[in-house]
Every structure is written in structure tokens, then in C-alpha cells.
Design a binder for these strands. Sequence first.
DNA 1: CGGCATCCAATTGGATACTG
DNA 2: CAGTATCCAATTGGATGCCG
Lengths: 115, 115
Amino acid sequence: MKTYYCDLEISLEVIGGKWKGLILYHLIKGPKRTSELKKLVQSISQKMLIQTLRELETDGLIHRETYKQVPPKVEYSTTELGQSLEPMLRALCSWGGDYAEKTFSEGEYQILSVE
Amino acid sequence: MKTYYCDLEISLEVIGGKWKGLILYHLIKGPKRTSELKKLVQSISQKMLIQTLRELETDGLIHRETYKQVPPKVEYSTTELGQSLEPMLRALCSWGGDYAEKTFSEGEYQILSVE
DNA sequence: CGGCATCCAATTGGATACTG
DNA sequence: CAGTATCCAATTGGATGCCG
């Protein structure tokens, strides 16, 4: 039996880790193909991208749709459960922007939106 | 110059990782001594606890107060910046509880609050 | 009590090559 | 295009011992 000492430990197990929150956040803004996600999160390796997607799928946060065609097409989207994290991820995202403005110096960082 | 492709990457850099969010959450509920934090997050090692606290301090989310006495006493508390994450961490925490109820089977997990 | 240093095991993660 | 497998480097993290 799994033992937790705080509900937050459960959330962090599901969306914690280096990439899960970020990938999920991009999918919350709309379904994406594998290659699109790779572009949105450039620093992730293909291996980690796939691995992260598998974990999110296993935990019921995203859905994987395969189109049987050549060349193959796969599209990922959020489930209702995954989508329910939208307010928190949006708030965190906005917090990150504020944090950077307050904390970093001009010219010390840049944000290149790839939307 | 640091480059980000999404503001969320900034937040995750600051409160991501295995322990930062959890430690911060406990401190948001009130100042704690080192040994108290260790009790609240039993599965963390002393090394990781100290390391996590240093990182949170460096990023300006928590404050470390040393009382010069024997035996030594150290107390950690949130800064205003750290406290500003309260709504998000509380929401995430509550989400984790809901997730567990929906997803886990009875007897598959337990939550032992140590408050 | 709170913290640091060292050593070592385990895990993570990247590069590359290959498949349908 | 999407994904898998393998190998290897880097990082993480735990156990232990020591210090003020």
C-alpha cells in the first residue's frame, strides 16, 4: 500500500518531474502532434519526450490518438482530468513571468515564445 | 543569457524538482525548524532536505533564521515571494486528494497526516 | 541540533542507430 | 513521422562520519 503524508505528494508524483507539467501545459492549450511538442520544448530529448508522454497517458492525464496512415500521425490531447489542471498551470505560468521580472536583470534572460 | 520558451519553465525551475514544492508548502503553513521539516517529509534524506532548503533560500522563496544558542536552533519561514505561491500549492494539494479518490482503489493507498 | 564532506549506488537522461 | 533499443555519461541521492 502506498503511503503519502500530504495530498500534495500525490500531485507532485503525477505532474512533478522535469517535463510533465510543461508538456501537459502545452497540451492544455490544444492537441499537438509529437513533432509539434518537440518544437515547443526544444531542450527535451526525443527519448524523454516519449517517456514523459507515456507517463502522462498512464496516469490518465492525456490521450493518445493514432491515425493509421503513412507516414504515421499521432496526436496527443488532454483528458478531462488533465484539463482540470489548467487553472493551476496557468497561474504557475503567470507567476513565473512575474518572478523573472522581479528577480532577473535585464539582458540576463529572454523568453522566446514559439506558439 | 538564459533562454526560456515558456514562462512555466521559469516556475518549474524554481519550485520544480522532487522536493521544493513540498517543503515550500509546509513552510507556507507556518515557520518550521529543520527537525520539524524532516518529520513532515519523512522520506527525504537529511542531505536533500538541507540542499533543497538552500536552493529555496537562494531563489528568495524562504528565509533562514539562526538563533545563536546551544544547542543550535534554526527556523525557516517563507518570504513574501514564497508565500505568494500559496493559492497554487493549495489548489494542487486539493487536486491531488481528488485525483487519489478518483484513481486509486480503496486500500491501495493511505494518507498519514503528520500535522 | 543543524549542517557539511565524502564515498558510492541508483537513477536519469543524452547520442546514436534502427524499425515500421 | 513516430517510436524503440542500446550504450554510456551525468546527475541524483543515500549512508556514514565528523564538526561547532
